[in-house]
Simulated scan of single mutants.
Amino acid sequence: MTRLILLRHAKSSWSDPALPDHDRPLNARGRQAAKQMADALVSRNYLPDTIICSTALRARRTLAPLLYLLDGTVQLTITRALYDAQAEHYPEIIAAAARKAGTPKTMLLIGHNFAIQDAALVFANGDDTKSFKALKNKFPSGAAAVLEFETNLTEVSANSARLVDYLRPRDL
């Protein structure tokens, strides 16, 4: 059994309209949500051994509070591919990172909507749970979908995961 955590970056700032999209930081609410989400992931024992993060500043700032809580043995990849990717690119990105890391047990992917939500919906075998309905309805900034696969992460595919948790900052 392997686990994939799909985390959307926390709420970003639009205070400087001249700033390129890629360079937008988190706003105050986003910084608080990133810290809350890091604490929630650790308290639920969703500890990644591999992390793939978008190069966008808001994604890297979402990651920062979690890095301080991990033990330092995490395989970290920061890639522009997640900034530009659509959901259909996620299996390839995940498989490549999994091969590089040597078949991780838990991978955290920090990216952007709508790719994050779409990927979670593609991977999860749609069920009638409250969590799946909430995920389908909206994937807000800072939210995380926790998926479990029977296969290793080099073989992720549509409808091959079970949604085991859906965390939103407002619920923490």
Rank of each mutant, 00 (worst) to 15 (best):
W14Y: 05
T2H: 13
V42E: 08
A59I: 00
G142C: 11
Q86T: 14
T2F: 11
L41H: 05
D128W: 12
S54Y: 03
A28E: 12
T62W: 03
F139P: 00
L109E: 02
L82C: 09
N113T: 02
T103Q: 14
A143C: 08
F132S: 06
S15F: 08
H112P: 06
T62L: 05
H112Y: 09
A144H: 08
D171N: 15
Q36T: 13
L57F: 01
L7P: 02
A124F: 08
L26C: 02
N125V: 14
I52P: 01
G142Y: 03
V146I: 13
S54K: 01
T50C: 15
S160L: 15
L108W: 06
A56I: 00
M107Q: 04
D128S: 14
L63I: 00
L57G: 02
P91I: 04
P25G: 09
N27D: 15
A38Q: 07
R60Q: 15
I93H: 12
A33E: 02
A64N: 04
L47A: 06
T62P: 06
H112F: 10
P65V: 13
M1H: 10
A40V: 07
I78Q: 11
T151M: 14
L67V: 09
A33M: 03
L69I: 09
N137C: 13
A85M: 12
H112A: 07
R170H: 10
D127H: 13
T55K: 08
L57R: 07
D71M: 07
T129Y: 07
N137V: 07
K136H: 15
K11R: 12
Q86Y: 11
A81Q: 10
I78Y: 07
R8G: 02
T55R: 06
G30Q: 06
A18N: 06
L63Q: 01
H89N: 11
D171T: 14
T103R: 11
P140S: 11
E148Q: 15
I52C: 13
Y46P: 05
